[in-house]
């Protein structure tokens, strides 16, 4: 599938998750994300378990922090009446205090909302490659997209390298815990990453990276600076409550940005091998995502949740033949 489709779906779910508080709806969205990550998993995707652990961790952290330093409101049934403590060194902070069902429920629901966001993005990352998505960015952003592709590809191996460097510390008879140990483990990893950057750059250079057929265009700089200027004017317009000039200014900025970007992209000879077709499954997933977001913003949480779940139908055509053939 097109790498952008599930990201649009995930964006819709993120927008929705930020706006609903009903635990049932949030739970349904979390399940939907997990279904997407399992059924739509692409080959070679990183493990989804990490996202699940992170999501659970976020809920746990929210709850724990609510109990420890949360602002306790006296509503709901008191579960545990902990003594409260107001430390003199941090005015306004109340440590511990009575834990109520409402407070705990709210903290958990807020945590769940964030967890749904993590799961939705994680599911999108599992179902479609962020690297491929970055590669479909416009040509003018090629350098940055490349840097981001490299970063996304290399980060997992750096995590492994940190682990290796920490294990190696034991070989020298040193402890592997504490800030000093982490700092010292980071140094060889960083050093290796820097050396690696040069190797990688050489490998890109000899394969023709950034070959251009012509010189750059003089008009790019002014166009881009003009775009930012227009954006600044537009932003102040928005804040001042003057849409009469905010909207035209922002539109002008967008137009200048597009013009600058297309001028900057001229003279690049590059082509792309993979064309990602956009078919009815992409429409289904991305459309559901867009509608979810719109319905969420419009304040229709139930409808939005239902649409988000319907978006998962885009998984079906891919799964059916596989299951039939088994």
């Amino acid at each position: 599938m097109h790498p952008a489709a599930w990201w649009v779906w995930a964006a819709g779910v993120v927008v929705l998750a930020g706006r609903i508080h009903a635990p049932q709806a949030l739970a349904a969205l979390a399940v939907a994300a997990c279904v997407l990550a399992t059924a739509g998993r692409r080959q070679g995707a990183p493990s989804f378990a990490g996202y699940v652990a992170l999501a659970l961790g976020i809920v746990a952290v929210r709850v724990v922090f609510h109990v420890l330093v949360g602002i306790k409101t006296p509503t709901g049934r008191v579960l545990v009446d902990l003594p409260s403590w107001h430390p003199a060194w941090a005015p306004g902070v109340q440590l511990l205090g009575p834990v109520t069902t409402t407070g705990l429920g709210t903290a958990a629901a807020q945590g769940l909302a964030l967890a749904v966001m993590v799961l939705a993005v994680g599911a999108a990352a599992t179902a479609s490659s962020p690297a491929r998505l970055l590669r479909s960015l416009p040509a003018a952003l090629h350098h940055l997209a490349t840097a981001a592709v490299i970063a996304v590809g290399v980060a997992p191996s750096l995590v492994a390298a940190v682990a290796a460097a920490r294990r190696a510390r034991r070989l020298r008879g040193l402890t592997t815990r504490g800030p000093r140990a982490i700092a010292h483990a980071a140094v060889p990893v960083l050093a290796d990453a820097l050396d690696r950057a040069l190797d990688l750059a050489a490998s890109m250079e000899v394969r023709g990276y950034a070959r251009r057929s012509g010189p750059g265009d003089r008009r790019v700089g002014p166009a881009l600076a003009g775009a930012v200027l227009a954006a600044a004017v537009g932003t102040y317009g928005l804040l001042a409550g003057a849409p009469a000039y905010a909207v035209p200014a922002l539109s002008l900025g967008a137009a200048l940005a597009v013009a600058g970007a297309s001028l900057a992209a001229r003279g690049q000879a590059r082509t792309r091998y993979r064309e990602d077709p956009w078919g009815y499954r992409e429409w289904c997933a991305a459309g559901a995502g867009a509608m979810t977001g719109v319905a969420g913003v419009a304040g229709l949480p139930l409808l939005a949740t239902a649409i988000a779940l319907l978006g998962l139908l885009a998984l079906l055509p891919a799964r059916l033949p596989a299951e039939v053939s088994v």
């Binding site: 350098h143 940055l144 490349t146 840097a147 981001a148 592709v149 490299i150 970063a151 996304v152 290399v154 980060a155 750096l158 990453a193 820097l194 690696r196 950057a197 040069l198 990688l200 750059a201 890109m204 250079e205 990276y209 950034a210 251009r212 750059g216 790019v220 700089g221 881009l224 900057a264």
Partner: peptide
């Protein structure tokens, strides 16, 4: 604008990672 050193691109990628 006008190009970026390929080494800077790689370094940006690695340090971001």
């Amino acid at each position: 604008d006008g190009g970026m050193d390929v080494k800077a691109v790689a370094l940006l990628g690695l340090l971001s990672a």
